[in-house]
Design a binder for these strands. Structure first.
Lengths: 103, 103
DNA sequence: TCTATATTTCTATAAATATAGAAGCGTCAA
DNA sequence: TTGACGCTTCTATATTTATAGAAATATAGA
């Protein structure tokens, strides 16, 4: 993870629509949710959400998998963890007391 | 910490200039560094940096203190920790394995 | 094939952002 | 009080971003 990836990742989390998307997906099962269902739950037009999902995907924070007509989106927890680790270890230089990261 | 504050915080970390500012300050002493010195080290015009510092300050990630003509900026590690915690606990719902946060 | 459903891409637009020159403000020392 | 220094604010501009309507693509079923 370099600075470029990191800033892209933080940018991806910098709007409520996208943050709520991540929150919703993190609480959904292993397979995540299909695009349309996310849009419905967040009350956002499907095409608008689709572009936000594309952005999250470009940042590497979500994975997608098509199943028939539906495209399931799920959080990439490993990517999210790397983003946290970059902030804690590389940026804050380990000075955030009380935070421990294995691996 | 609510979603609004969180998105503002992540937005603050979403450019290399600001991320490098945080990295630099995190590695500087308790009192941080004066604005001009940050600008010099990052090779950015002082007025440009000043606005980025204002943005970081608005997001609550840095503290400032004037000493004579100089204004020292320092990372607010507590705020940074809250931002990490929000991501780990509220967004990822504790599903980031191997990350532990006290308090 | 034809139709309905699910999603994405194209396109346009309004708003926000990054950047830096110029000007202004606050502080210090002589 | 004058001048220099450090920093910020004002202003302008180019770029990026968020948003959503309209059109296009992909899949499933009859």
């Amino acid at each position: 993870m370099d600075a470029k990836q990191a800033t892209q990742g933080y940018a991806a989390l910098s709007t409520e629509v996208r943050l709520n998307t991540i929150k919703l997906l993190a609480r959904s099962g292993e397979d995540g949710l299909p695009s349309g269902e996310i849009a419905r739950k967040l009350k956002i037009p499907a095409n608008s959400l689709s572009q936000q999902l594309a952005l999250l995907s470009a940042a590497g924070l979500v994975k997608q998998e098509r199943e028939g007509r539906k495209v399931f989106y799920a959080v990439d927890f490993d990517a999210l963890k790397k983003l946290v680790k970059f902030l804690v270890s590389d940026c804050a230089a380990g000075r955030l007391k009380g935070i421990r990261i294995d691996g």
